[in-house]
């Protein structure tokens, strides 16, 4: 009788020992693994969604006509080719019938599109979205055109600049008629800016 009681107590002690040393840690481990599994599954879902969206966007990008992509590259180039832009400026000025005096290439700087003539925007520097990142990478290249011609020629020049294949924003125009003798010809100073998206 006493022997039987000892066995029973021993069984209970063994059971408790197993619970404490094997089952409890195993349960904790399983719980941790299940949490990890849930995280992995969540990440898998997101990765799947991301991959699907990515594949969709890649196919959309691949389906864009090459002419459109070329036009976009021309409109927003990766860098401003100052020689090419200067050549275009010369062509535009001469095509408008003005006599080109000088094309001055200014110093390139980073600006936002909204504040193209106001230097770097603080808000653009602190943001993190793709749009703000794009604006941070936007570089502006100023050019100053000095030319002589008639008022009609100047208007023609402005229209040609406005219709240019890539953005050539007119940020300043000034001219005065000082001459009393030959007032048909005026001396113009026109400030324009071109833009590029710097690849970082």
């Amino acid at each position: 009788m006493r022997f039987q009681a000892s066995i029973q107590i021993l069984l209970i002690v063994i059971s408790v020992a197993i619970i404490m040393t094997v089952l409890r840690p195993e349960f904790s481990e399983i719980q941790a693994m299940q949490d990890q599994l849930a995280e992995y599954n969540n990440a898998l879902d997101k990765a799947d969604q991301y991959n699907r969206a990515l594949q969709e966007k890649i196919s959309q990008a691949n389906n864009l006509p090459n002419t459109d992509l070329a036009a976009l590259d021309q409109y927003v180039p990766n860098r401003v080719d100052i020689v090419r832009v200067s050549r275009d400026v010369v062509n535009i000025v001469e095509g408008s019938g003005l006599l080109l005096i000088d094309v001055e290439v200014g110093e390139s700087s980073s600006v936002t599109v909204e504040n193209a003539n106001a230097g770097v925007s603080q808000s653009a520097r602190t943001g993190g979205s793709l749009e703000e990142e794009a604006k941070r990478q936007l570089a502006v290249q100023p050019f100053t055109i000095e030319a002589i011609g008639t008022y009609t020629n100047m208007k023609s020049l402005l229209r040609a600049v406005e219709q240019n294949a890539y953005p050539m924003r007119i940020v300043g125009i000034s001219f005065t008629n000082q001459s009393e003798s030959d007032s048909r010809l005026l001396s113009y100073t026109i400030d324009v800016e071109t833009y590029a998206l710097n690849a970082q």
């Binding site: 409109y75 927003v76 794009a134 936007l138 998206l197």
Partner: peptide
């Protein structure tokens, strides 16, 4: 990069 170009082009 393409997306950023489109954003900038649209903005300009």
């Amino acid at each position: 990069h393409l997306e950023k170009k489109l954003i900038i082009a649209n903005d300009l």
